[in-house]
Design a protein around this nucleic acid. Structure first.
Lengths: 204, 204
DNA sequence: GTTAGCATGTAAGGAGTTACATGATTTT
DNA sequence: AAAATCATGTAACTCCTTACATGCTAAC
């Protein structure tokens, strides 16, 4: 829930990794995915798509869409380059993976990463938040008593929120570890009904 | 915890409303206040101060600081114009008050607003979040089952967080209303030990 | 005396928003 | 027939970040 960085590109790669899509739909899915704050504007999405076309990460799909709709729409799909780039970004472990902006998208596409990577990213994120908590608590001791009541209440609520997120991450980490022990490679409980992995009705 | 807008200016006005301060200290206080996400950079703060000087919202304090420190520092203080502008911004009720960016700062300075304003802003914020919840939940019904497990978990956690914030706001609203009934004008429980409202040690 | 932190700034540039512009198609 | 919403785009602009540049002072 914060500022974005190179976020959109990864999100687009991830969504197109599921299957071809046109810009308008991409925007809707994106807004659902990272839409807790602001809503992504067209003035942001379309130029990004153009740029990704230029760098050959995506291409216009030539396959005629099996749809009644005769609307003018441009369906995009990943190129091999784009596929590799997605892989590369998703296996990248480091600050970019657990900063506020990117973490959400990284997490949303966790289904396409190894558990090892997932664990590293979750733990990185947790450390990040814990550092932040430590810093704030330390500063609260230093500056104590000088803040007014409302400001203090805001601080308190902020700390509580971050602590909650830390607990959430801890639970996720434990869950990943459990799965690592009960099974060797793939996840047992998470991927339950994956009989039809990508079945999306293109407006029937 | 999100994007900023005209946020910094209000924050600076609010902090200087407490008393004169120099840029470096301003930055530290600002980071504590809105620092849950990113940290404010100098490249952002100093140009803002310059701009506020130009528009006569603030001025360089000529009063020699009662301090041993001989460090080169520029102490800023509010002008009458700046004071009025702060008042104006703080009494402004509307989207700008309860958007993600501004709400935090508005809240932090609630001590300098009437309860009537506070209530309107808190309720506005709550409605905003509830709309957002409704929108997401509706879209979840529409798109249901197509999302993968991790994406779904992220959604779930997001919804939970927002619901938590709504509860928090509701408690605050109730508290304000209680105070309105038990007392006429000023707050009873919040302002407890305000014997020395602004006593900050300028490095002793 | 040298490292760490205080203190102020500037220039270049990235990322995304707002507002504008256009038109087709579906629903009411 | 009008309204909604699908669909794609562009131009100007804002806000902020990164990286650079400088020098002082406190502590070790």
């Amino acid at each position: 829930m914060a500022r974005r960085g190179e976020t959109i590109e990864l999100a687009v790669l991830g969504l197109l990794h599921e299957g071809p899509m046109h810009g308008y739909e991409l925007r809707k899915r994106l807004n659902l995915m990272l839409g807790w704050g602001r809503v992504l504007s067209y003035g942001s999405l379309y130029p990004t798509l153009k740029k990704m076309l230029r760098t050959h990460l995506i291409e216009e799909s030539t396959a005629p869409v099996a749809s009644v709709s005769k609307r003018h729409r441009i369906v995009y799909q990943l190129t091999d380059v784009g596929d590799l780039e997605f892989e590369r970004l998703m296996t990248e472990v480091g600050p970019t993976a657990w900063e506020d902006d990117n973490f959400g998208i990284r997490f949303a596409f966790f289904g396409r990463t190894d558990m090892e990577i997932r664990l590293r990213v979750l733990e990185g994120r947790r450390s990040r938040l814990q550092e932040r908590l430590a810093r704030v608590q330390q500063q609260l001791e230093m500056t104590q008593a000088e803040v007014d009541q409302y400001a203090a209440e805001l601080q308190r609520h902020g700390v509580e929120s971050v602590e909650r997120e830390v607990r959430w991450l801890s639970e996720l980490i434990d869950a990943e570890r459990d799965r690592a022990h009960t099974q060797g490679a793939v996840s047992p409980r998470l991927h339950t009904d994956q009989s039809s992995p990508v079945t999306r009705g293109e407006e029937p």
